[in-house]
Amino acid sequence: MRYDVLIFDLDDTLFDFGMTEKNALLHLFMEYELPNGMEDYLPSYKDISKVLWDDLEHGRTTLAKLKVERFKRLFLQHAMDIDAEAFGQKYLDKLGKEVHMIDGVEEMFANLSGCRFALLTNGFKEVQHARIGGSSLKNLFEVIITSEETGFQKPQTEIFEYTFDKLNISDKSRVLMIGDSLTSDIQGGNNFGIDTCWFNPHLKKNVTAIEPTHEIQSWEELVEIVNKEVLEVK
């Protein structure tokens, strides 16, 4: 077996975050009596959220600030008199109840016997633990590491050091980081000196200078990579 420790990202790698976000916001807009909220505010929210998550990756903000700031900006932009802090907490509560696994994930794990699994996510601790706990993957991971608990986020090397310490491992050659984000998962793994696997089911073009060790479009491909025996050069 080429790799026996697999570190996975969560959102848009194992779980469909687009569906999670959509359902959580839909329910929240209805609660606030904004029946046209998805149509009126979702595009603005996505733009604001994208900027703030990029700021988080580059150390320009924190999760605690992001939690409220995204809705502060949204409500300011649309002149809405809503408490952003309360809205932000309710949003996290609803996110934690949404479990939408990407096709093929369960079968993939079933075919990776003998591996150790860890989860490494930049998401909120309460949300990610709730979603994993509500899924069939709840007993699968040795550790679930969130940026909120470590104070660091991918692609910072410190969060990988924290993960290795929790797993009590030191041999980087046996570890593979798998995720959908080139700038977070792949860059982070590259920075730390471990092999990386870019999950790219939609065939996005890599326009960055970031080079993953592997690129896959399906989970069957990951099983093949992991179970492939390393040929000894004699």
Results as ranks from 00 to 15, higher is better:
89 Q>E: 10
163 T>D: 11
227 N>P: 07
105 V>Y: 09
24 A>F: 09
15 F>N: 13
76 L>A: 15
186 I>D: 14
88 G>I: 07
209 A>C: 09
120 L>N: 10
85 E>R: 08
37 G>Y: 08
169 I>C: 07
206 N>L: 00
23 N>E: 14
230 V>M: 07
60 R>A: 08
124 F>N: 12
3 Y>N: 01
230 V>D: 03
156 Q>E: 15
157 T>R: 15
116 R>A: 06
48 I>V: 12
177 M>R: 05
43 P>Y: 09
191 N>R: 14
109 F>W: 03
226 V>Q: 01
169 I>W: 07
75 F>A: 06
77 Q>I: 01
91 Y>R: 00
225 I>V: 02
205 K>Q: 04
187 Q>S: 12
79 A>S: 12
93 D>G: 00
120 L>V: 02
21 E>M: 09
202 H>R: 03
64 A>E: 15
160 F>N: 15
206 N>T: 01
231 L>C: 01
156 Q>G: 09
180 D>C: 10
187 Q>A: 14
31 E>R: 03
226 V>P: 03
209 A>G: 15
66 L>C: 08
234 K>R: 04
88 G>H: 00
213 T>I: 01
38 M>T: 09
23 N>I: 07
37 G>T: 05
23 N>L: 09
16 D>Y: 04
162 Y>N: 13
143 V>Y: 11
73 R>S: 07
139 N>I: 00
172 K>G: 00
75 F>P: 09
224 E>P: 06
139 N>Q: 12
191 N>V: 08
214 H>K: 11
106 E>G: 12
90 K>G: 10
197 C>H: 04
88 G>L: 10
21 E>H: 02
190 N>Y: 11
217 Q>P: 00
31 E>M: 00
93 D>L: 05
39 E>S: 12
92 L>E: 08
119 L>P: 00
15 F>E: 14
145 I>R: 10
181 S>L: 00
56 L>E: 14
105 V>Q: 11
232 E>A: 04
112 L>S: 03
57 E>N: 08
136 S>F: 01
70 R>D: 14
102 I>K: 14
216 I>H: 13
177 M>V: 03
184 S>T: 07
72 K>Y: 02
109 F>Q: 04
165 D>V: 05
106 E>P: 03
176 L>V: 00
59 G>C: 00
136 S>N: 12
89 Q>S: 07
47 D>T: 15
22 K>G: 09
29 F>W: 13
29 F>L: 05
131 R>N: 13
108 M>V: 02
45 Y>L: 15
203 L>C: 08
42 L>G: 10
69 E>R: 07
153 Q>T: 11
185 D>C: 07
